[in-house]
Amino acid sequence: MNRLHILGLFYRNIILIRRSGPKLFGLFGFVTVALLLWGFLTLWLQDLAPGEAVPDFIILILSAFIFWSLFDLSQRSFGISFLEEVWSRNVINLFAAPVKLSEMVLGFVMVGVAQAFLAFFYVTTLAFLLYALNIWTLGFYIIPFFVNILVFGWALGVVTIGLVVRFGPSADILAFFIPFLLLPFSAVYYPISVYPPVLQTITFALPTRHMFEGMRTAISEGMIPWQEVLWATVLNVVFVVLAFLFLYWMLHLARTRGYLSRLVHD
């Protein structure tokens, strides 16, 4: 592992984020608008069903929203770090440099971590100021969920890179679409008990389902459901391994069939 290779990729992406208004809006703007939307909806739900017998919608729905945004951002920032090389026709320079695939991925992970921390602190502060939601009262309970959410986002980011390498720049839509595909099946805003039995079985394979179900338990019962954390972690490990195997396979195909050079011509 060459530290300079990883830092080089990190530096390149940080310059772009720091300098670009649209990129900063992507980091902070969308999440602000969505927080307002979900916040008002939650307040309305709270008004419709007042009393102590109903769940605390603000904390349940807004916490879910914050963690889903984190997942969405971690996947997107990872995919976009690579797409940036494709869009700026730099991908051949990158693959002809003595950078290992693992170094490239670690560089993107560093960019993802930096963005995730920034966005997380921003959105939790905003949620506190607007809705008096203090997610930090969950304390250390949030750490396993935070880490698992980031890692699953990166695993899907690795898959996105593989798809772009295979299908070219036109596959960039996937960088934005993949999390959306998983949203209905991840039990983000509702418990898994609302799913039909067959869907409950199928969605068991999704780490996001265990993260959000576990997080709801942590919020409502004040304890970490270790079984959900364990399943999320085990499934994450499986997804990370599969994502890397997929990327290696796609790169092998790209080198055999000449797709890499097509990335700058398409």
Binding site: L4, Y11, I15, L16, N90
Partner: peptide, 16 residues
């Protein structure tokens, strides 16, 4: 990459 300056581009590739 079009979105870097020449100094940044050369620095990034020196690192890579």
């Amino acid at each position: 990459p079009y979105n870097l300056t020449p100094r940044e581009g050369l620095k990034v590739f020196s690192m890579l």
